[in-house]
C-alpha cells in the first residue's frame, strides 16, 4: 500500500532519530506508518540504518563473558525455529497502525471532540501522544499552535492549511512557529494520525477551556 504522489516527506532529522531509536513511541508510530506508505522515505531510512551499521563497526568492542557463545547456542536451541509472520492482509491502514488499533478503521473507538470532529487516542508511552483524527469533509480543526512538535499524517482524504494541501501519505511537521487551521478537503472526510509531544495551544477561549477534557 504505497502512494507515489506523496509530496510531503519525513525530515532527515526525524529519520535519523527513528533509525537511532531516539523518538518517543507516538512519533515512532507515525514515522513507521508514513514509511509503510512511502518507498522514498523507506529507502532514506535504509541509508540512516546503514549509518548505524557503520557506527556498530567502529564503536569498539567489549569482551563477552566466558562461555557466552555456548550460552547463546543454548538460547537458540531452547527457542526453536521462529515462524515468519503471515503477510499482512489487504487493509485500508498501514500495518503498524493496525497493531495499535487492534484492527481496521472499523475497530476504532471514536470519541467526539466537538463540531463533528472525532478522535481516538492510541496507547503509547506518555512522553508523547498519538491520536487518530476524523475531520468531516469541509470541517476545520480549531486554529492551534504547538508548544513542541506535531506530526500529522494523512491516512484518507486530505486537508488544507496555511502551509499547503496534504493528501494520503503526506506528513506535516509543525513546530512552535506554526499556528494553523487544518480544514478537511471538501471531497471526502479526512482521517489523520497526529503525534504531539506537548499539549496543543488553542487560540480561541472555548477550545482552550475544553482542552483538558478532550485531551487535544
Amino acid at each position: 500500500m504505497t502512494y507515489v504522489q506523496i509530496k510531503h516527506h519525513l525530515s532527515d532529522a526525524l529519520l535519523m532519530a527513528y533509525s537511532a531509536g531516539n523518538l518517543p513511541e507516538a512519533f515512532s508510530l507515525t514515522v513507521a506508518a508514513h514509511i509503510s506508505m512511502c518507498d522514498e522515505c523507506r529507502a532514506r531510512l535504509g541509508a540512516f540504518d546503514a549509518m548505524g551499521g557503520a557506527i556498530i563497526e567502529r564503536c569498539g568492542t567489549a569482551e563477552m563473558n566466558a562461555g557466552s557463545l555456548e550460552a547463546t547456542m543454548q538460547r537458540i536451541r531452547a527457542t526453536g525455529p521462529v515462524k515468519t509472520a503471515a503477510p499482512a492482509r489487504k487493509c485500508n491502514l498501514p500495518q503498524p497502525l493496525q497493531d495499535y488499533i487492534g484492527g481496521d478503521l472499523d475497530a476504532v473507538k471514536w470519541r467526539s471532540a466537538g463540531m463533528g470532529v472525532k478522535q481516538a487516542i492510541l496507547p503509547t508511552s506518555r512522553e508523547a501522544t498519538a491520536r487518530l483524527l476524523f475531520i468531516p469533509a469541509g470541517a476545520a480543526v480549531p486554529d492551534h499552535g504547538h508548544r513542541g512538535t506535531e506530526l500529522t499524517l494523512v491516512l484518507q482524504g486530505a486537508f488544507v492549511d496555511e502551509v499547503d494541501h496534504f493528501g494520503p501519505g503526506d506528513i506535516e511537521i509543525a513546530n512552535e512557529d506554526l499556528n494553523h487551521t487544518p480544514v478537511a478537503d471538501i471531497g471526502a472526510d479526512c482521517i489523520c494520525l497526529a503525534a504531539t509531544d506537548a499539549p496543543l495551544r488553542f487560540r480561541g477561549l472555548i477550545p482552550r477551556l475544553a482542552q483538558p477534557f478532550l485531551r487535544i
Binding site: 537511532a20 531510512l45 503477510p87
Partner: peptide
C-alpha cells in the same frame, strides 16, 4: 541491537514499518 535497546533500556515498543 537497536530494537533490543529500545525494549530493554527505554521499556518501549518500537513500531516497525509494514514489510514490503
Amino acid at each position: 541491537a537497536r530494537n533490543r535497546k529500545i525494549d530493554a533500556l527505554r521499556k518501549q515498543k518500537r513500531p516497525e514499518p509494514e514489510d514490503l
